[in-house]
Write a protein that binds this DNA or RNA. Structure first.
Length: 436
DNA sequence: CGACGCTTACG
DNA sequence: GTAAGCGTC
């Protein structure tokens, strides 16, 4: 083949990238393309995205190529670039674009884009191929043996997923050759919205962290991942969100980290649910006729981390400050909004989606519906006692004190229940509702 | 082969 | 309570 365009999206890496690897193996020239779509602003994720793109450009340049950046509608820009390279009435052909590659994704938006791209490719007599790479096991690759297009319950999926055969982990391409004279375009500038040094974007940082964590930390994951104050989770989620890391490579390197691999399986699980139910971010997966309180004041207090329940407020403030929240805190904060304040899960999920560096449709909305009882949980009326959970997972109150400075001088015994102090705590609100 | 019911298991 | 998996008809 002469030239292939690889339209990148949430696969910003060179290692284990099937769409890129196939292009490099099959075509003389490869155009790695990223299109910044102004109709889908990255918001809080824009800084992380900018860093990931800058890093990807460095990696591609080291291999003799480049990252080509355009702005506009990804489908229109891909076609425009293909025609520019292949040459039109004004001549100047630098190659013949024969195919467009993408990494297959699951959200309604992504799938609509893929369908449009496939149509446009056909119209312009180019091939179109969607490759795996966003999940460990491609969505739809394992289905219930009794029929059905996807698994609705996690545990049977986990069993099937573990025994399913996997593709090989692919090396980064040794060389990437661009067509001559192509304008590489200008990547987005760095952005003030990089809330925390913990999350510098890009594959290079991600791989360094992956190696370190697999070597020194994964063994402690099972015992430590629920410890709210300790940094004992991987914090890979933003890197997985943007594809700076390959989930397949992670899963195969973490052979002995069963509990960690299980979390990667949850990610795959929600991706295959989203593929089968693309309205997951708006519609109840399992309608249960629930009614919600339209309580703007309570919602605002929750968003700002002033519900008066310390463990909830700590989590919500970690989200505001860092663009990330500990998994256990995500459970407690979302449970409190949905089950205690009885606010619609969509309002909470949209808030998380806007602020989380790792915010993606499948995981965010899938987990919110799980908590709300409209999702894949087989026990939709599960109850959680946030004070008991706080005592268990933040026994010294270190997590609460870190994010809720008003409570720093409250003794550990009452830290998780400051309303028990006879005079309360100055500057900290009384609880909006009783916690359980 | 598919509908149905039974058993098992479920964050 | 509900889904998966399997055996049976």
């Amino acid at each position: 083949m002469d030239t292939v365009i690889v339209l990148l999206n949430r696969d910003l890496r060179v290692h284990d990238h099937p769409a890129l690897a196939a292009a490099c193996a099959e075509a003389r020239r490869v155009v790695p393309l990223f299109v910044l779509d102004p109709s889908v602003p990255a918001g809080r994720r824009s800084g992380f995205l900018a860093e990931s793109l800058a890093d990807l450009r460095r990696s591609l340049r080291e291999r003799g190529g480049d990252l080509v950046v355009r702005r506009g509608d990804p489908v229109a820009e891909t076609v425009r670039l293909a025609r520019e390279i292949t040459g039109g009435a004004d001549g100047g052909s630098t190659g013949v674009v024969e195919a467009v590659h993408v990494s297959a994704d699951v959200s309604a938006l992504a799938r609509r884009r893929e369908r449009r791209l496939a149509e446009e490719c056909e119209r312009h007599r180019m091939g179109f191929r969607a490759f795996p790479g966003v999940t460990v096991v491609p969505p739809g690759a394992v289905t219930p043996s009794g029929g059905g297009d996807h698994y609705r319950v996690f545990t049977p999926y986990w069993r099937a997923w573990q025994t399913h055969s996997r593709r090989e982990v692919l090396p980064a391409p040794a060389r990437v050759t661009l067509p001559e004279g192509l304008d590489p375009g200008v990547p987005p500038p760095g952005h003030p919205h990089r809330p925390h040094e913990l999350f510098r974007g890009g594959e290079t940082v991600a791989r360094r962290r992956m190696r370190q964590w697999l070597k020194y930390c994964v063994a402690d994951y099972a015992a430590g991942h629920d410890d709210l104050a300790g940094n004992r989770t991987s914090k890979f989620s933003p890197y997985l969100r943007f594809g700076c890391l390959s989930p397949l490579e992670l899963a195969s390197l973490a052979e002995d980290g069963d509990d960690f691999v299980r979390q990667l399986c949850w990610r795959d699980f929600f991706h295959q649910v989203t593929m089968a139910f693309p309205a997951i971010n708006r519609a109840d997966y399992r309608p249960r006729g629930l009614t919600w309180n339209d309580d703007a004041e309570a919602l605002r207090a929750w968003k700002e981390g002033r519900t008066g329940l310390p463990i909830v407020d700590a989590g919500m403030r970690q989200l505001l400050e860092e663009g990330w929240m500990h998994n256990r805190a995500r459970l407690l904060t979302s449970w409190f909004l949905v089950k205690r304040l009885r606010v619609d899960w969509r309002a909470g999920a949209d808030h998380f989606f806007g602020l989380l560096l790792d915010g993606d449709v499948a995981n965010n909305y899938g987990n919110w519906q799980w908590v709300a009882g409209t999702g894949n949980d087989t026990r939709p009326n599960r109850t959680v006692n946030p004070v008991r959970q706080a005592r268990r997972f933040d026994p010294d109150g270190e997590y609460v004190r870190r994010y809720v400075p008003e409570l720093r001088n409250v003794p550990p015994k009452t830290l998780h229940e400051p309303w028990r102090l006879p005079s309360g705590v100055r500057g900290y609100p009384p609880p909006l509702v009783s916690p359980a």
